[in-house]
Design a protein around this nucleic acid. Sequence first.
DNA 1: AACATCACTTTTGTCGACAATTTTCTTTTT
DNA 2: AAAAAGAAAATTGTCGACAAAAGTGATGTT
Lengths: 246, 246
Amino acid sequence: MLLQNPIKQAAVTTADKVFEQLQYAIVEGDMVAGSKISEPELAKYYQVSRSTLREALNRLEKYHLIERKANIGSRVVDCTIEGLLELYITREALEGMACRQAALNMTDEEIAHMQAMLSQHANDKSLQEGVSYYQEQGDVDFHYKVILGSHNQQLISLICDQLYHLVRMYRCQFGMHSPRATRAFTEHSNIIQAISDRDGELAELLMRRHIAASRKNIENKIALQMAEQKSKHVSNQSSAQISEEI
Amino acid sequence: MLLQNPIKQAAVTTADKVFEQLQYAIVEGDMVAGSKISEPELAKYYQVSRSTLREALNRLEKYHLIERKANIGSRVVDCTIEGLLELYITREALEGMACRQAALNMTDEEIAHMQAMLSQHANDKSLQEGVSYYQEQGDVDFHYKVILGSHNQQLISLICDQLYHLVRMYRCQFGMHSPRATRAFTEHSNIIQAISDRDGELAELLMRRHIAASRKNIENKIALQMAEQKSKHVSNQSSAQISEEI
DNA sequence: AACATCACTTTTGTCGACAATTTTCTTTTT
DNA sequence: AAAAAGAAAATTGTCGACAAAAGTGATGTT
């Protein structure tokens, strides 16, 4: 898997390993979103006792990948358009603030490193060719660098633990593509400039616009698809591909 | 306990009940912050098996009230000045955005209800007398109303589940008092006005100032106490009382 | 006296079984 | 035939026991 959580710790216990496998299965859609989870079945599948499976489920619940009800059971979280938009709004708030804090708290070395990363991407031939794969990775790297640069454990934990698992899940399930490389590159460039200027206010503003632009782009795509589907009388919209950036 | 989580569901299972008791014990400081947790000991104390106690611990970990390490054990989270300030910065980001969304998404009925709540507080004699108790409750009610008014499940869950347990813990452990009633009342009043004007931008700005003001006030108090302690050669600073608003 | 090693104790992780609750299916009644 | 009631099956919650890992203290070596 490409988009790794940068602050995760190694899986030492069996429950950890089962959790990781389940995490990938859910994020990549091998376990269908919204479906019920059978503890005995899964325990048998992963060759572990139900206790350790439940331990893994607890961790999945912590990361908002499943939902549990007492005496009823667990379900994989559902991927809805509303949920996706809510996620973007939350990201806008948290990553915006993280970017402001990064401008205040990043060391000069960290900033230099981020600038180096960016110019490396600039020289990368994939950018010129408009290939999305490397840019995708670069985009994720950039966002993580900014988040970690906030030096705020609370923000880091919330964004990386609570949000980004879901972000990756939506990316996979809705088949979202990367942003047009050049546009994102310019925006990233401006954000880094604001950070190296130690201009927290501008840095936050730019990051919020960067994320809000993606959200609005998605909203437009959705509106378009809805109209298309209405004219074509297609009922199933959950498998729709949304060509948009992270 | 006064400051309840407004979105919590009833505790039906034994693990739920143990979790609730442990939650209060941690928040109110009956279990000292940073201390190690003994599973056998706690299980015996609450008269449950270690399995159900571990289930409760899992939930505490989900809410960031304890921290676990594989094969090592659990510790109650530590209350530090840095952690408190990080919490305020995160609140500023999340509640600011929640307030913006509330301006966009609250129903007219919800707004009317919040206005009624505020004028009730205005007429309450406790406000005139500057009694903090009711105002404390009123302040919490106000913030919760705004958060729920965002109609954004992601924001609601993050703030109420992840942040407010810690907020209450810090309030208890640092013995923080309420804000001066009249000042907070005016600020709340202005925020509600912005919401009823459907002015999301202003609503967010005012809420962020409202929270940032508290944070800065705390920072000043801390700086003052640090100076005092230095002159008095007092070493223990963790039990300091910080007279500041939520 | 300080350090390393080994055995012992304690604690955490995992397992299978039982109890309680929910769901499903059958039977009964209107 | 539809709805209600009750029995059976399956699922979740809880328990005590064992296995594995970490911590502790005594012993021996340099």
